[in-house]
């Protein structure tokens, strides 16, 4: 680490240039695809679009927004994200609170078994059989229950709870508060940073859900946005737009694809700056504990 006493060298200049290039490499693909989404089909196909739109048009976005299939996928994904994230955060808190209590009998064994699941898995097919046997196929619960608790997130929350002084819970217990009451009224209000972090992690997971929808969902009414997007941009050669939009004869395919990518990404891009300071704090809690 550089201190004030260190003279500024060529390395400092090179470092700034290098890091600026890394950051540029992170945003250029997004700027390029945004430019494509506003550009005319002719300009895109002749390779004239780089970082600014050429032949400005809004037909790409209009096609996406007017598509019943895309709108249904959007509606279902919003529903999945809200419902799923609520369940995830609630159940993770229910697990983290008792397990953060140092003298809970059996805590070590329970924790060991939970950690074991991080390193050994029955695999895709046996899990699929469980989901199938429970009758969850083609329901929103197939996308929520198999990943109800992410063990890594459980570790983060348990670590956070362990840092809250036990005296607070003790005095509430003296006053006759129930355990669930203590969790709801004392622990959770003190835990907004970790709740925000886990809401972001779980929420992004649902918003980006592709794989589970691919394997568990047949009903097109329950396709997630990412599944629709994948059909549109990578499924087969040229069939995607027909699958999503019904007929694709007069559709500017390239700008629609770019528009759909940005449409599915926009919520993440908008929410990101607001949530950023939380997740950095939250992720640090976990790693510092190591």
């Amino acid at each position: 680490m550089a201190t004030r006493r260190d003279p500024i060298t060529w390395f400092d200049a090179l470092n700034v240039v290098l890091l600026t290039m890394v950051a540029a490499a992170c945003v250029i693909p997004m700027i390029h695809v945004t430019a494509l989404s506003f550009s005319s089909e002719g300009a895109i196909l002749s390779g004239r679009v780089s970082l600014l739109p050429v032949g400005f048009q809004l037909q790409g976005y209009r096609t996406v927004l007017e598509s019943a299939a895309m709108m249904r996928a959007l509606g279902f994904t919003v529903y999945l994200t809200i419902l799923g994230t609520s369940v995830n955060v609630m159940i993770t808190a229910l697990g983290a609170y008792p397990l953060a209590k140092p003298d809970l009998v059996g805590r070590r064994l329970i924790w060991l078994l939970i950690l074991f699941t991080m390193f050994f898995s029955g695999g895709l097919i046996p899990i699929f059989m469980v989901v199938r046997a429970l009758g969850l196929l083609d329901t929103v619960w197939a996308l929520i229950l198999p990943g109800m608790i992410a063990t890594f997130n459980l570790i983060l929350m348990k670590t956070y709870f362990s840092g809250i002084p036990t005296s607070l819970a003790e005095s509430a217990r003296m006053d006759g508060a129930s355990e669930i009451g203590i969790l709801m009224r004392i622990i959770l209000p003190l835990s907004t940073p970790i709740i925000a972090t886990l809401t972001l992690f779980y929420g992004v997971g649902h918003w980006n859900q592709f794989f589970l929808a691919l394997i568990y969902i047949q009903d097109p009414d329950k396709y997630t946005l990412q599944l629709r997007l994948q059909q549109l941009i990578t499924d087969g050669i040229g069939y995607g737009p027909t699958v999503v939009f019904g007929q694709a004869d007069d559709i500017p395919v390239e700008s629609v694809k770019a528009g759909a990518i940005m449409f599915a990404t926009a919520p993440v891009l908008i929410a990101f700056p607001f949530l950023q300071r939380h997740f950095v704090k939250g992720a640090l809690i976990g790693s510092l504990k190591e």
Partner: peptide
């Protein structure tokens, strides 16, 4: 800036990469 791509789905990232 460098944290951002982590929050994009692989569908979006592959779409971006294929486009670029």
């Amino acid at each position: 800036i460098v944290y951002l791509p982590h929050f994009l789905s692989w569908v979006v990232v592959s779409g971006l990469i294929i486009s670029v």
